[in-house]
Simulated scan of single mutants.
Amino acid sequence: MTDARPPVTDRETWAAALADLRRREKAATRELDAIAAQRRRLPMVELDDYTLTGAEGPIRLAEVFDGHSQLIVYNHMWNDGATFQCPGCTGFTTQFSRLDYLADYDARFVIITPGPIEEALAYKRRVGNRMDWYSSAGTTFSADVDAAQGEGFAVNVFLRDGDTVYRTWHSAGRGTEQLGFVFGLLDVLPYGRQEEWQDSPAGWPQSPTFTRWRGAEEIAAAYGEPDA
């Protein structure tokens, strides 16, 4: 806990300060709308006919869409043989537990990792992940979408036309934040994310980046299947 607090003022002064902030928030919303409009106008690039591996065995990338025309892929970081994988990837994907509504928009969200499928499925159970997992092991898929083993995580979006798959969008690092809800919730709190890189008033609680994030072991204990 901290004794630091925002200054206390009267209702009128608070409302005026909020209105000033609201103008910036509205401007940011309009800018995000414009960015999304530009994203919808991006060209796309045709991909090879990759064969990945799923829970039921080999599966073509076009089949991963499960009949939908759009696919969002979280490319999960992976270390072969590790009991617990990247805590950032593990925590980020834990946010997504109810994705059926994407089908109403002709879309699907899955995880693809370069790790062996047996390890990937075991890890899914261990940490209580809800999405379907696929492995790109033995293919160049992960490297071709900027998520090679040892290089980090990414989000990629694809469009399917029959059996042909196109890559339409990619992001990594903080560019993936917009897909989750946790950071958005933290950012409206008085103390924010409480990470030392953030611009906060003097005395606000701040910690080194990542230190408040839950580790993969904690996530497994909270959400995973027993003995997975």
Rank of each mutant, 00 (worst) to 15 (best):
I111Y: 04
D66C: 07
G88F: 10
T113M: 07
T2H: 00
R11S: 13
N129A: 14
I117C: 03
E195D: 06
L179F: 15
A62R: 08
G81P: 07
A36L: 12
T94C: 02
I219T: 11
E225L: 13
G192H: 04
G203A: 10
A222E: 12
I111W: 01
G57M: 08
R174T: 14
D20M: 09
E225W: 05
I111S: 05
R22E: 14
V73E: 05
S135N: 02
N156Q: 08
P205A: 13
D161E: 15
A222Y: 06
R125T: 00
S136L: 02
A154I: 05
E12L: 11
P116E: 07
Q178D: 09
R174C: 12
G67R: 01
T13Y: 01
R60Q: 14
D227E: 12
Y101H: 11
D132E: 15
T209W: 08
A4S: 11
V157N: 09
D104T: 13
A228F: 09
A137N: 08
N75R: 00
T113G: 08
G192T: 04
N156A: 14
A103L: 07
W204Y: 13
A147E: 08
V155P: 01
V127I: 13
D144P: 04
D33Q: 10
Q38L: 11
N156H: 06
E25H: 10
A37H: 12
Q149S: 07
F153H: 08
Y223F: 14
D100S: 13
D10G: 09
N79A: 14
Q95H: 10
T13F: 05
T53I: 03
L21N: 11
W78N: 03
L32V: 07
S171P: 04
M77A: 15
E217W: 04
N75A: 11
A15D: 15
D10C: 01
S142W: 00
